[in-house]
């Protein structure tokens, strides 16, 4: 049997990705991403670096940094000898899986893109780290909480204050609610 096709919902539990706008701020849920967690033993770190260069098109980024490959994948530092590889659904090449522990996290995280001239004003109501371009330039990534919930903030364009934010699926609605309140306050509502 098993002819039933299982429908898909976004990380926020919606049928269509969330997209909301304020004067000077917008937030947009990104769907269809694959998120893989990589963790490597000390002895295999260099080997993994080479494998990533060969198979993903980039070496592993250092602490607090992320890199984009020309295939549109992103490798983000995520902790002690840990990275997230974010792509559009591709799997991790076997050569990499031989050297590192690779675990699918695509459904555990929700991804959101925020941008607009009021983004910094919104973020300072939520985030404890300094997102000023001087201290958080483009290509920086930080794991830090927002209102008590895990988050990962990546600076896509520091001058324009455009960021990609990853947060946990189960508390995603609470997460987004806090953003709404912060945006209401920072931007006003039409």
């Amino acid at each position: 049997m098993a002819e039933v096709k299982l429908a898909v919902r976004t990380g926020l539990g919606r049928e269509q990705p969330l997209a909301e706008e304020w004067p000077g701020f917008s937030m947009r849920e990104i769907t269809g991403l694959s998120v893989w967690w990589l963790s490597v033993a000390r002895k295999d770190r260099d080997g993994l670096d080479k494998a990533c260069t060969r198979h993903l098109g980039t070496a592993l980024p250092p602490e607090r940094r992320f890199v984009e490959t020309d295939k549109g994948m992103r490798v983000l530092w995520a902790g002690d000898r840990q990275w997230f590889v974010i792509g559009d659904g591709a799997h991790i090449p076997a050569a990499i899986a031989r050297l590192a522990a690779v675990t699918d996290q695509s459904d555990g995280w929700v991804a959101m893109h925020v941008s607009g001239e009021r983004t910094r004003a919104v973020m300072e109501r939520l985030c404890l780290v300094d997102l000023d371009p001087a201290t958080f330039p483009t290509g920086t990534v930080a794991r830090t909480p927002i209102e008590g919930m895990h988050a990962l903030i990546a600076s896509d364009d520091a001058e324009a204050a455009a960021c990609t934010i990853l947060f946990q699926r189960s508390s995603a609605r609470s997460f987004v609610d806090h953003f709404r309140h912060a945006a209401d306050s920072a931007c006003g509502r039409d």
Binding site: A100, D104, Q105, S106, D107, G108, W109, Q168, S170
Partner: peptide
């Protein structure tokens, strides 16, 4: 290497004498 996958999966317990029969229609 350890990572939480609590949010990664939805998980359901199907229990009772007819559990396998229900499961057969899904697996």
């Amino acid at each position: 290497h350890m990572v939480s996958v609590s949010d990664q999966y939805a998980q359901f317990a199907i229990a009772g004498p007819n559990a396998r029969k229900v499961l057969r229609k899904l697996v």
